[in-house]
Nucleic acid binder design. Structure first.
Ligand code: DGT
Ligand code: MG
Ligand code: MG
Ligand code: ZN
Length: 621
DNA sequence: GCCGTTTTCGGCCCGACTGTTTTCAGTCG
């Protein structure tokens, strides 16, 4: 049972308890346990086997720890079975409909024996909902409308998918007369990989005029709520957008509130209470006296801590660190100097190798790697050994034609079902940069795929593991290998891990990247671009890194070229890059060691020196 | 149900909008 499965069960149990009328704080405890379980990098299953480990998690005490152990062992726990008899599991999903919370769902269940969306729709269509206490005609219509909307239209979306519309709406609101400031807040500002809605914050202007401008935007299909300080709309695409309007003197406190996360807000508010104050979106106050509120910094400072970057506001350990002044100095997009995972039309990319290299250079990169697929993916024209040999000259030619950027001759080599690599060692030796990836047999059971990954990571020519789990957001589940062991192996062997920046991959994700960091693994942020436009996705990878709390020094492709190659040589003395990729048009006269090997010449000298300079780190395990 | 250099009991974040509530509960952010 994965952490996500466990979290979902406790989330469901919380709602069942809530519908049953349980103490709201008890309900909150179950929700909090679900959140904590979901945010753990290590499998809870494993922790459950060791004494006291679960109880060490915040928000999980004796009781919840035991219930988690029950679920891990048997798939359920007595309370869950008991609640299931009272509150059918299917009922829980009804609370996702707007306007239906635990109380009304309880009424539906008890008065009309409604158990499913179908039951609810039938009752609505025959006008039976409006009769119920706490219901009415308006709500009945609202429910019918919510039922008609597809799950997809109202579900979460990729951050990249809403990037443009978010900025468009913010600009629209900002143009309204009198409006002084507009920010996109919520999960968007925290750069979560998906967002449930958009949350806009504005200050200044006449409330009526601002709300009117907002709700009459051409994309707005439906107005869900309309007040003086807060309105909600649904766009034609189904995306919900909330606008909060606040006086300028409260803008910082409001931005803090509206950025969240909810749990971060609650923790800050508790600290305010401890200090004899009260925090809301209007400001931090001692009694009737405003203490802070114009800027976020002001509020954090008044609470005794430093400003927390939005990406870290997830109620993990950021408040503790902000108090102690131990917040990381997060990596920034402008720190990146390379893109080390790119495809061209030689395999499944859209543009030529030269076009991709020029585009990487135009984005300010000092070096890049071209990494076509290998032969395990014949549909994508994956390279076999002969094709790699021809590629050596193709890359050399591009180095000639595009001065000012170093080009690593790389490949994205498939990890075969047994953990062997898709190309022979002599061929791998032609490469400056070896990305290894899982693309096939992703459904292998945990032990099998763990062994497969560990074997692949142990290959001396490997530079980096690409999109490690192969998950697709909203699609494929992550491969079931033991990430902790894989990261330990990578750390011991100096293999890098990729943070793949494709908006629907983001792999490693923030949780795994955080664990990688604690294991001492360095990472690279790469776009895996199949077109020039996709080179701009790098920022989404940076967001993942920032959410993981990573600094510039944790990301290898922030290094200048020479230092990057030197670090690779040190970390991978037997590796693909042992000799260094010397090819660039500026030094085109010099042959790269890889190229030399390609023509059967010895390039032993440089590789050996690299190895001698610093032996491989080997961590005992 | 969790938690604790103020507590092992008694707190647990705080505010906006809606509809039917005949004075505010329910839901949501
Ligand atoms: N203090 C407090 N703030 C809340 C609460 N619920 C939401 N907020 C704040 C923090 C949230 O980040 C912000 C926006 O609410 P959303 O429901 O849109 O959540 P968020 O954007 O974080 O995630 P999302 O991707 O939309 O699901 O409002 C709450 O119960 N208490
Ligand atoms: Mg939101
Ligand atoms: Mg919202
Ligand atoms: Zn791939």
């Amino acid at each position: 049972m994965t952490n996500l499965d466990l979290a979902r069960l406790f989330q469901r149990l919380a709602t069942m308890l809530e519908i049953d009328g349980a103490n709201p704080f008890r309900v909150r405890a179950y929700r909090e346990a679900a959140r904590v379980v979901e945010s753990q990098a290590e499998p809870i299953e494993a922790l459950a086997g060791e004494p006291k480990r679960l109880e060490e998690l915040p928000g999980i005490g004796k009781d919840l720890a035991q219930k988690i152990r029950d679920v891990v062992a048997t798939g359920s726990t007595a309370l869950y079975d008991e609640m299931k008899a009272k509150v059918p599991e299917e009922i829980v999903a009804l609370t996702e409909l707007q306007g239906l919370g635990p109380k009304r769902v309880k009424t539906l269940m008890e008065r009309l024996q409604i158990h499913s969306r179908q039951d609810l729709e039938a009752a609505g269509k025959t006008g039976r909902l409006r009769e119920l206490p706490g219901f009415g005609e308006v709500l009945e219509q609202k429910i019918l409308k919510a039922l008609a909307a597809t799950r997809e239209a109202s579900g979460r979306r990729l951050l990249a998918e809403v990037w443009a519309v978010a900025h468009g709406l913010a600009e629209h609101v900002a143009k309204t007369r009198g409006v002084q400031q507009v920010e996109i807040a919520g999960s968007f500002r925290r750069r979560r990989e998906t967002v449930g809605d958009l949350d806009l914050l504005a200050a200044g202007g006449d409330p009526e005029a601002v709300m009117k401008a907002f709700t009459t935007h051409p994309e707005v299909a439906d107005i869900l709520g309309l007040g003086d300080t807060k309105s909600s709309v649904r766009l034609a695409s189904g995306l919900q957008v909330d606008l909060r309007l606040i006086p300028p003197e409260s803008f910082g406190a409001a931005l803090l509130y509206f950025t969240g996360s909810k749990q971060h807000n609650i923790q800050l508010r508790r600290i305010a209470i401890e200090k004899g104050m009260s925090l809301s979106e209007y400001g931090l106050a001692r009694g009737a006296k405003q203490v802070a509120g114009r800027t976020e910094e002001e509020v954090y400072r008044a609470l005794g801590m430093s400003w927390v970057p939005p990406e870290l506001r997830e109620a993990r350990d950021e408040i503790e660190r902000a108090i102690e002044g131990r917040l990381p100095s997060l990596v920034d997009l402008s720190d990146l100097r390379a893109d080390l995972h790119m495809h061209s039309d030689r395999t499944d990319g859209r543009e030529s190798l030269e076009t991709m290299v020029r585009a990487a250079k135009a984005r300010g990169h000092g070096y890049c790697a071209i990494t076509e697929h290998s032969k395990a993916l014949p549909m994508l024209k994956g390279f076999d050994e002969a094709r790699v040999r021809r590629s050596v000259d193709e890359v050399a030619a591009v180095r000639q034609r595009v001065p000012g950027i170093r080009v690593l001759h790389g490949l994205e080599v498939d990890i075969l079902a047994d953990g062997a690599l898709d190309l022979d060692d002599d061929t791998l030796a032609l490469l400056d940069w070896v990305v290894i990836s899982l693309h096939t047999r992703l459904g292998q059971p945990g032990p099998e795929i763990t062994a497969r990954v560990l074997r692949a990571l142990a290959h001396p020519r490997v530079s980096v593991m690409g999109h490690p789990t192969a998950r697709m957001i909203g699609g494929r589940e992550p491969a079931a290998f033991d990430m902790e062991r894989a990261l330990e192996e990578a750390a011991a062997r100096g293999v890098l891990m990729e943070i793949n920046a494709q908006p629907d991959r983001l792999d490693l994700n923030d949780i795994n990247a955080r664990m990688a960091h604690t294991k001492g693994v360095k990472m690279v942020i790469s776009t895996d671009a199949h077109s020039v436009a996709q080179l701009d996705n790098q920022r989404y990878g940076v967001f993942v890194a920032r959410r993981a709390g990573l600094e510039k020094g944790d990301i290898a492709n922030t290094l200048p070229y020479e230092q990057f190659m030197e670090a690779l040589r040190r970390a991978r003395p037997g590796g693909a890059s042992a000799g260094g990729a010397r090819g660039a048009t500026t030094t085109a006269a010099k042959e790269t060691p890889a190229a030399a090997r390609a023509r059967g010449k010895a390039a032993r000298g440089k590789a050996a020196r690299g190895a001698k300079a610093r032996p491989a780190r080997r961590k005992s395990r």
